[in-house]
Design a protein around this nucleic acid. Structure first.
Length: 180
DNA sequence: GATAAGATGTTA
DNA sequence: AACATCTTATCA
């Protein structure tokens, strides 16, 4: 399988969010590998009021300005982590939130950003790991090709700012999308 | 089905 | 004080 490289992520965030649909996400920990197919994503960009980087560089948002293809993992609501992949050139902020996976191996309950991190044991320790590196504990590969007509576009979920941006994408009719 | 509230820690 | 969430309870 073809691993996603830096050039894949070094593009417009919305494009990356759409093209990540159907890709395979692999998490390796303690000799185990969890696999899932990405079925739901959201885009967040530098000029987007809902993005953590909207107010510039802070200790948390700094990651979003770094090189494309690294993970951005943050802790939210006192109990959950969320996994994103950094996009756009270095010094331009952007990321794609991974919102849901279709389980491949031993996973279940991956139909939400907090749940999939819990299942895959993704925590802040994985912040800034290079996802494009074969040896990384998190990797992404091309897997299924999803035609545009099978991609549904909606507004994003769980935010109060920029609620009208149509930047949530998911695979049509997929059973593992959050909020059906 | 819809809506509300509670759990919980980090961030700015 | 708000938060890129999820679960459970309480309606209808």
């Amino acid at each position: 399988m073809e691993i996603l490289d830096k050039e894949f992520f070094n593009r417009d965030t919305v494009t990356v969010a759409q093209e990540l649909l159907g890709c395979k996400l692999s998490r390796r920990i303690n000799g185990r590998i969890y696999n899932g197919i990405i079925v739901e994503t959201e885009a967040y960009t530098q000029n987007d009021p809902a993005c953590h980087a909207f107010r510039g560089k802070t200790s948390r948002s700094l990651t979003l300005f770094k090189q494309p293809g690294i993970a951005y993992v943050y802790f939210i609501y006192g109990m959950y982590h969320c996994l994103n992949f950094v996009t756009e050139p270095e010094d331009t902020a952007g990321a794609v939130l991974i919102r849901a996976l279709e389980p491949v191996s031993p996973l279940e309950n991956t139909n939400g950003p907090g749940k999939l991190c819990r299942e895959m044991k993704i925590t802040k320790e994985l912040n800034e790991v290079d996802v494009t590196d074969k040896k990384s504990p998190i990797r992404t590969e091309k897997y299924l090709s999803i035609p545009l007509k099978n991609i549904v576009t909606t507004t994003r979920i769980g935010i109060k700012k920029a609620v009208d941006y149509p930047w949530r994408f998911y695979i049509k009719d997929n059973l593992f999308v959050s909020r059906k």
